[in-house]
Design a protein around this nucleic acid. Sequence first.
DNA 1: TCTGAGCATATTGTATGATTATATAGACGC
DNA 2: GCGTCTATATAATCATACAATATGCTCAGA
Lengths: 237, 237
Amino acid sequence: MRVTNARNLHGHVTQELGVRIVSGQLRPGEILPREETLAEQMAVSRTALREAMRVLSAKGLVEARPKVGTRVRDERYWHQLDADVLAWRCASMPPADFVEKLVQMREIFEPAAAALAARRCDASQLKEIELAYLAMEASRNSDEWAVADLQFHEAVLIATNNELMSSLFSVVETALGSFFVQSARKSGDFKYSLPYHRQVFDAIRRKQPEVARRAMQQMIVDARANMTGKRRTRKSA
Amino acid sequence: MRVTNARNLHGHVTQELGVRIVSGQLRPGEILPREETLAEQMAVSRTALREAMRVLSAKGLVEARPKVGTRVRDERYWHQLDADVLAWRCASMPPADFVEKLVQMREIFEPAAAALAARRCDASQLKEIELAYLAMEASRNSDEWAVADLQFHEAVLIATNNELMSSLFSVVETALGSFFVQSARKSGDFKYSLPYHRQVFDAIRRKQPEVARRAMQQMIVDARANMTGKRRTRKSA
DNA sequence: TCTGAGCATATTGTATGATTATATAGACGC
DNA sequence: GCGTCTATATAATCATACAATATGCTCAGA
């Protein structure tokens, strides 16, 4: 999930400030200390701090102007689909309703992606999906399962041949990764969703978009039911 | 559409290099000149160049390592959903199939968004949708129309109360903005899609998710047909 | 009193030079 | 041939100086 490289100093600074902002410790509208003092507080040079600020600015989190200072921007300007912003959000104890929003996104584009994949994927992409499926089948514990599961869904998204779609993987799916495990654990049998995946894979292989769509839809609805414990939405959600 | 602030020098540099990379003028795997010489070529200081590099790196376009230099990363690592990356892509004469991908995204999440909005939106959000609709109705030329049209779709996305969803607006919709105009022009009457918008608005107001979904779906299918001139996909696309 | 031009000032923006850390490749010994 | 050590090129970090730019205040003039 980590995108911003924390090996570098400015990477650390970026994360540190990013988390503070996204978690709400620094509120929108608030003006940060001036570069010199902030750099001193964080024990880095102004250069490193500024490079971090540039990144945060590119993510829509802050806005800097001469004389007035650097201000935390309103949430509506944040690049919510940025992997870092999302990760920082997840790091700061995501409230249940945020997870819900992620799931909501999945419910929307994953079935559509399955349908697209059934139409458009080539042989090698299909092979990738199969490999992931076989890995799920062969998994011996829930950790192995989780890895293969993510691999499967990524392969499906890539098979759409729409890079915007696949980008949603690194954003939404990865953020949900930990919850997949959770979902698998709650059901007792971590392989409980294997038949669904089989259906999706088969439908894509046979070039049956609508079948693939429905299978994926059912899978997700079921996963949600498992996660939330009881709540179950209608199929149209 | 512009996100990266081009007022600043590093903003210019970011855009300049970003376009060069996304347009393919600088190819993945290629290693850029060292900071000193590149800064010299662009007639800026190393400071400005580095801040630009930091941003490009955050967008997944480049990767810098000591001793080896700064390398353009493979396309699969690019943050395709980043507004700048998208804008740069559109700036460099997007091939028709890329526009097609954008439309594909729209087809997937806009109907879903309309359904969500019908379920979840509050009074003030509904008011925003109405205002946008009225503005479309009152528009006297295709430019006014285009603005109001975008406003309408943004209002719908915001009314989902899912900020991930609304973020898709600034990304996908804005990129498509120019094509809306195109679509409206081709049809002769730029207000041709007003009835569709009315249907969507009414359905949301009456809390009819499925009606809203279908209306939005028809609108988009129609817009695509108008844009591509003839091609028409089945409703399930 | 109100208005507007202009000046003072605080803060970010840009530039430069020096030093440090790091990864690569080549030399050297085994 | 193979690993280790060293040289070196490059980015990373730091420190400092100066420029550009908003903001708000002062003060002249109506």
